[in-house]
């Protein structure tokens, strides 16, 4: 009896000890989280209803949102972001999937070699890649792509400075540069498929393409959805390529939402408007993500 009671007592003590150590473990992380995530988030919402001034901001109700939504440039930036996303995200998934399929039949060592090879561009910073591509796209005859066109006796292009090709140039750069991690993730998913599926298909005399269509694609659906959603979220926030390479031009044809928010905040000092636009962007991303989960169906678990 006596012993049991002390055990129970000790158990309770243990739990309280756990509470204290739990809070101690998360203390630093929570202070940082409060200061640099929660506070800025709340502050952004407040600022979006204000005309920000260092001393004495004034409340302007929904003015910033009205300004944002009635601004032609905002809608153009939205359109550009959607075009950029629609061209880069699905296509780079297709490229990553095909490359992963091609790497699959090799031995583990060879697989790692190819994975590393395709991952290397991801190690270079966006500033570095932008600088190199600026020269590849250089509008003069000395630009690499123009040298290539001249070699094939084709007319040279203005690449980044013509409204016809500027957006496509950014898309091409994204397609060739950013597939490393998707390839690796796809290979992991492919390696996880149980071999019995293929054996059964073989018995039924299925061809390679039938196996891909009816076994691989459905089983990779969660991976595809994951890559698709994260791809879209990242693509909607894209900033540095347009900032470094085109400055949004020509004629704002490559101004995307990320760049527009940056310009409003740090070029024109319109903090309130920038915050309102950033919050609109958040709502847009959240809505898109929710729609994708709905469309993809309930068979995907996270």
């Amino acid at each position: 009896m006596e012993q049991q009671r002390t055990i129970r007592k000790r158990g309770k003590l243990r739990i309280r000890e756990d509470h204290i150590s739990g809070y101690l473990f998360i203390a630093v992380a929570m202070v940082v989280f409060l200061l640099f995530t929660i506070y800025p988030l709340i502050s952004a919402v407040i600022t979006s209803f204000q005309n920000y001034k260092p001393f004495g901001s004034t409340w302007v109700k929904l003015d910033n949102y009205e300004t944002a939504l009635s601004n032609k440039l905002f809608w153009k930036a939205c359109r550009n972001t959607v075009i950029y996303t629609a061209l880069t995200v699905p296509l780079s998934l297709v490229i990553a999937f095909i490359v992963a399929l091609m790497i699959l039949p090799f031995r583990r060592g060879t697989q790692s070699f190819f994975k590393s090879l395709y991952y290397i561009p991801a190690v270079a910073s966006a500033v570095v890649t932008s600088m190199v591509w600026l020269w590849i796209y250089d509008s003069s005859d000395a630009g690499l792509f123009n040298q290539l066109l001249t070699f094939f006796h084709l007319p040279t292009q203005q690449w980044l400075t013509s409204s016809k090709t500027a957006m496509l140039s950014l898309v091409l750069m994204a397609l060739l540069g950013g597939n490393g991690s998707s390839i690796i993730i796809y290979i992991a998913a492919l390696m996880g498929i149980d071999n019995t599926y293929f054996e059964a298909a073989e018995v039924d005399g299925a061809t390679f393409w039938q196996k891909v269509r009816y076994i691989v694609l459905p089983l990779c659906k969660p991976t595809t959805l994951f890559l698709f959603i994260t791809g879209i979220i990242n693509s909607f926030q894209v900033f540095i390529n347009a900032y470094m390479m085109t400055g949004g031009g020509p004629d704002n044809n490559t101004t995307m939402i990320g760049l527009l928010i940056f310009n409003n905040a740090f070029k024109y000092g319109k903090y309130g408007l920038a915050c309102a636009q950033a919050i609109l962007l958040t709502i847009l991303i959240a809505a898109m993500t929710a729609i994708q989960f709905k469309v993809a169906g309930s068979d995907v678990e996270y």
Partner: peptide
């Protein structure tokens, strides 16, 4: 849960207040 939600927020939202702060 709060931390998970925070991961979904685009960095553009927090950058301006962070800069002001």
């Amino acid at each position: 849960f709060l931390i998970l939600v925070a991961m979904m927020i685009p960095y553009q939202v927090t950058q301006v207040p962070l800069y002001i702060l």
